Amino acid sequence: MELRLGTRVVFPGVFTVMTEGLVEGADIAEVAADPEVVRAVRAAPRAPVVAVAPASEEQAAACVRAGAGLLIGDAFAGVAAATGAALLCSAPERAAGVRPDGVLVRAADPYEAERLAGAGWAVVVDAAEPAVASVFAWTGARVFRTADPDATRQVLDMVASIIGIRPPAVSRRGLA
């Protein structure tokens, strides 16, 4: 199923990189849950989807009005459902009322990621190391939270080529 994050549509088979703060190369930037910060990030050229982890429903609604496309936390399912924002939650049942193409579920291990992805959910993982990202990508995760978007993107492109989602960047044959 496609994933809708704010004005962006992420199609199946496309990997998405999420970072803390505004980092070049990130598709999603988690920023402070402050409407002014959200507006400033949205005003940046080639602005990523803005994600926030608010402290209250009122703060969540204010951030969505300012342009946040992703709310982080089970407690904000009601706000996400009412505003149309996407929700990153701990389990699919925590997203009651949220549109299915706006639900991201956090997975803690590859087995959980494979189970959730197999059920059709967009899976988010914390991928501190590129090697970890490759294992999760292989099991079906779609969103990778990392501090190193360039290295993570490189390994995700490699995995996509191996599993046949995209062509290899360079194709060489071993000729003697």
Rank of each mutant, 00 (worst) to 15 (best):
A85C: 14
V105S: 02
F76W: 07
L88D: 05
A108E: 15
A86F: 04
L70W: 05
L70R: 11
V98I: 02
L70Q: 13
G73C: 13
L70E: 12
C89P: 03
A108N: 10
R99E: 15
A77Q: 05
A75S: 15
G67A: 13
R94M: 06
R94L: 03
A82S: 15
E93D: 15
G69E: 14
G73T: 11
V79G: 05
P92R: 04
L87Q: 02
D101T: 00
R106T: 14
G67H: 12
G84M: 11
G73H: 12
V105Y: 00
C89A: 14
A96M: 02
G67D: 14
V103S: 01
V79H: 05
A77E: 09
I72V: 15
F76N: 09
G78Y: 10
T83M: 06
V103W: 00
I72R: 15
L104I: 12
A107V: 09
A86K: 05
A68V: 09
A86E: 06
L71Q: 08
A86S: 15
G67R: 07
F76C: 11
E93C: 02
D101S: 06
D101R: 03
V103Y: 00
V103I: 14
A82L: 04
G78N: 11
G102Q: 13
G69M: 11
G69P: 13
A75V: 01
R94F: 00
A77R: 02
G67C: 13
A95P: 03
R94E: 14
L71S: 12
G67W: 09
G69Y: 11
F76V: 06
V98D: 06
A86G: 15
R94C: 07
A80L: 10
G78K: 03
D101Q: 12
L71Y: 08
L71F: 13
A107L: 08
A91L: 03
V105Q: 00
P100T: 02
A107I: 10
L87K: 02
R94W: 00
A107K: 01
A81H: 10
L71E: 08
A75T: 02
A81G: 12
R94Y: 00
R106C: 04
A81E: 14
A80N: 11
R99A: 15
D74K: 03
D101F: 02
G84I: 06
R99W: 07
R99V: 03
V79T: 14
L70T: 06
D101N: 14
V105D: 01
A75F: 03
L70G: 06
V103G: 04
I72D: 09
D101K: 00
E93Q: 13
G84E: 13
V98K: 03
F76M: 11
A81K: 08
R106D: 02
A107G: 12
A96L: 12
G102A: 15
